[in-house]
Design a protein around this nucleic acid. Structure first.
Length: 463
DNA sequence: ATAGGGTTAG
């Protein structure tokens, strides 16, 4: 009815698009479809923008196949998909890391006489980086773009800088940042990407400098900047400082989206301050925030820490009732929670069922299980799992080294520790101390001397 | 398409 009235102003399709856009944004895809049908009945024709918006919605909330099916409907309606249509589909496929599909869409675009634009290539490069295919990503940057007659834009640099930081090449990112500065004025997002990369790499001094650069460029730190710094405080165990910053953020109105709350709650849970953690969670709900899976995970972890297993069961039921999908964090929290509450068998069973549900093996979950099995006295079972793991990280090694020491298997622990040095895996010095003092205490002075010498050598080789 | 929130060792 409203659309019928507005038709006279000539704005009808634009209004339709605005409505479809906001419906899609809030997951109301079916309502958007109904609106389009009603529009057609009233003589308001959808255009390419309408369909592109719908496709973006399907990609986000439904699936690639369903989104792709819309392109056929477009063609039937006599509307030709454009570059933006394909960019939406490519983005959807890239988000799911479906590289084959991304490449197929590039081909199909060309077949229809459409040329991928900078946005398409940015997405492709990002997808390669996320899959760890750095060579291919750089090929897009240095070759494909040039062949297409395009050159990197500010967004290309943002994708690149973020990917470099996340692969651990923060210095390369900084170098690339300088290159970027010679061509464009970096945006606030660029600074946030670098500050985040520097904080995660614990390059606190450089991160602080980057923050002053951000301000010097005329920007004001936003909620993202603040949350990044907040996380740094918690990671470096400056809990009080972090809480002070959080209160400041609250005063200034930077906590509107709730992200900072979760950082605070998890820091409080880690330090055993579950009561305060609950208060913040309640505050969040009072502020009208609906639970998403992240918020459920935080709450779930909180209940496990409290040992409130009834609350855990209730919450899991609620998650299921709401049709929310448990993710890898949920499963890790469950496995770890069961282990910590002494339910080793149930934890193992849940772990097995994860495999049956087709959830890929998750490193963190494995780490929790290795540690939990050791602590429950099943060291041999833990070691078997440890041997079977294809990917291991510093957490894996640290917990096994410590648990071996607890079992007074110092020689074994020492061998493992030394293998870390040769692999370049950073192990906290507490593990080193545990091994060396253990060896000495059990009278293995020769082994202790030898291990110490080898560690020294490895460290020299490091630098 | 690109930035910040939730899981693990000591």
């Amino acid at each position: 009815m409203v659309l019928g009235l507005v038709k006279f102003t000539g704005l009808s399709t634009r209004l339709l698009n605005i409505c479809v856009h906001s419906l899609c944004k809030f997951r109301k895809i079916e309502k958007a479809e109904t609106l389009i049908t009603d529009g057609i009945r009233l003589g308001v024709s959808p255009d390419v923008v309408t369909y592109n918006t719908l496709i973006t919605g399907y990609c986000r909330f439904v699936g690639i196949e369903e989104a792709y099916a819309v392109t056929r409907r477009m063609r039937d309606a006599g509307i030709r998909p454009d570059v933006a249509t394909y960019n939406s589909l490519i983005a959807g496929a890239a988000r799911r890391l479906m590289l084959d599909r991304v490449l197929y869409l590039f081909d199909e675009m060309l077949e229809w006489g459409l040329y991928p634009d900078l946005w398409s290539y940015n997405t492709l490069m990002c997808c390669y980086f996320k899959l760890g295919k750095q060579d291919e990503a750089f090929r897009v940057l240095y070759k494909d773009l040039r062949l297409a007659g395009l050159s990197p834009g500010p967004d290309t640099y943002n994708v690149l800088l973020d990917a470099l930081c996340k692969c651990g090449y923060v210095d390369d990112a900084l170098e690339m940042f300088r290159e970027m500065q010679s061509r464009f004025k970096p945006g606030l997002m660029t600074y946030n990407i670098l500050i985040n990369g520097l904080c995660k790499a614990r390059r606190v001094g450089t991160a602080k400098w980057m923050l002053t650069e951000l301000k010097r460029s005329g920007y004001t730190p936003n909620a993202v900047t603040y949350t990044t710094i907040l996380k740094l405080y918690f990671k470096t165990r400056r809990i009080r400082r972090g809480l002070e910053l959080f209160l400041e953020m609250k005063r200034e109105g930077y906590t509107y989206d709730g992200y900072a709350y979760f950082a605070v709650v998890s820091a409080l849970v880690k330090t055993g301050r579950t009561k305060e953690a609950f208060e913040y969670m309640q505050e969040l709900v009072r502020n009208g925030r609906r639970h998403d899976i992240v918020s459920y995970n935080t709450l779930l972890n909180l209940y496990f820490r409290e040992g409130d297993l009834d609350a855990v069961d209730d919450l899991l039921g609620e998650i299921e009732r709401k049709g929310m999908k448990a993710d890898e964090y949920t499963h890790t929290i469950i496995v770890n929670g069961l282990l910590r509450t002494g339910q080793t068998r149930r934890a193992e069973k849940h772990f097995v069922s994860m495999g049956e549900m087709g959830i890929g093996l998750n490193l963190v979950t494995c780490n929790c299980l290795v540690d939990g099995l050791c602590k429950a006295g099943h060291v041999d079972r833990a070691l078997r799992l440890f041997e079977s793991m294809e990917v291991k990280d510093e957490y894996t090694y640290t917990c096994v080294v410590h648990n071996l020491c607890k079992e007074t298997r110092f020689v074994c622990a020492s061998k493992l520790l030394l293998s870390c040095y040769s692999k370049g895996i950073k192990i906290p010095s507490s593990a080193r101390r545990a091994v060396l003092s253990g060896l000495r205490m059990s009278g293995c002075y020769g082994e202790a001397r030898m291990a110490k010498a080898k560690m020294k050598l490895a460290q020299v080789g490091d630098s």
